[in-house]
């Protein structure tokens, strides 16, 4: 599709509530250089969310939506969990189906969109929690990587089952006392980034959402590499402040602590050679495009 399609019929425009006018007028659909800085003004992202106040997941959502290269041609696949409370408010088609089969749904969806629209890049992005990605859905997560399905998997890692009240998950750290781990979790946090790399992902990133520019770059890399090269995986630490006993304002500090040296979420990136080549060429293209735009702006209009 093109952004031109997201328009209101003139004859009925005056009865449409303001939020839809904003959606059309100030959306960054079609803008190649959209990014996290647009979150204050672009209402195609999320206007309101229904997560707990101060939840880092809500800000992660906004960064991700702002960083998508082509939201007008992106379809999300979500899974059961807190994220599914946000999806109805997002101006991108999104599918919620079952718990754990998000990567299976995305596999069928991506292949179909590729076959129906061979000349358009339709991006499919999976966005699910750690329970869905690692526990109940691990086989489907990994099998989609084995099969080299060309879409991006994003895992919101809050190290527990937040939506059901804080139960142990595979991505929980060892020793953490939680529901269903009354004596503390007795095995290590699953090393999903390493698994992703070994399972065939062309690009893997592990980070927190404390720094928006980093999130933006990682999401752009992941989506663009998924188009051309193969599966990509991004694991974002979005602590559940409620379940780890923190206050609304303490989410950012928690993320900063965990990403400092020796922490669980020191930023890691794995880029395959082919993916790196692609990123390099994109970098050059972007540079040239911006330079040309700058020069065009310098020239007098009637020249």
């Amino acid at each position: 599709m093109s952004k031109e399609k997201i328009q209101i019929c003139e004859d009925l425009a005056d009865i449409m509530p303001p939020e839809y006018h904003k959606l059309v007028e100030s959306a960054t659909f079609g803008n190649q250089d959209r990014g996290w800085k647009d979150i204050g003004s672009s209402t195609e992202l999320i206007e309101q969310h229904s997560l707990c106040a101060g939840c880092p997941e809500s800000i992660a959502f906004r960064y991700i939506l702002a960083s998508l290269p082509a939201p007008e041609d992106t379809v999300f696949v979500g899974s059961t969990g807190c994220t599914s409370l946000v999806f109805p408010h997002v101006a991108v088609h999104n599918i919620h189906s079952l718990f754990g089969n998000q990567n299976a749904i995305a596999s069928g969806l991506k292949r179909t969109l590729k076959s129906r629209f061979p000349d358009v890049e339709k991006d499919v992005v999976v966005l699910a929690g750690d329970g869905a990605t690692v526990d109940i859905g691990l086989d489907m997560t990994m099998q989609s990587w084995f099969r080299q399905e060309k879409f991006t998997t994003i895992c919101f890692d809050n190290e527990l089952y937040a939506n059901t009240g804080g139960q142990e998950s595979g991505l929980m750290q060892k020793g953490f006392v939680a529901k269903m781990a009354p004596k503390g979790k007795n095995f290590e946090k699953v090393r999903l980034p390493e698994i992703a790399r070994e399972a065939g992902c062309a690009y893997v990133a592990l980070l927190t959402v404390s720094k928006p520019n980093r999130v933006e770059q990682v999401i752009k890399n992941a989506v663009l590499i998924a188009r051309e090269v193969g599966p990509t995986f991004v694991q974002l630490y979005t602590p559940c402040i409620l379940e780890i006993g923190k206050q609304s304002m303490e989410g950012l500090d928690e993320m900063k602590d965990s990403e400092s040296i020796g922490g669980r979420f020191v930023q890691k990136e794995y880029i395959s050679d082919e993916a790196q080549k692609l990123l390099d060429s994109i970098k050059i293209e972007t540079k040239e495009r911006k330079k040309a735009a700058k020069e065009a702006a310098k020239k007098p209009v009637n020249a």
């Binding site: 399609k5 997201i6 209101i8 019929c9 004859d11 009925l12």
Partner: peptide, 11 residues
Amino acid sequence: LVLWKWNDHVA
């Protein structure tokens, strides 16, 4: 389907 101008017929 008629509020959004996703094709000319609906306009």
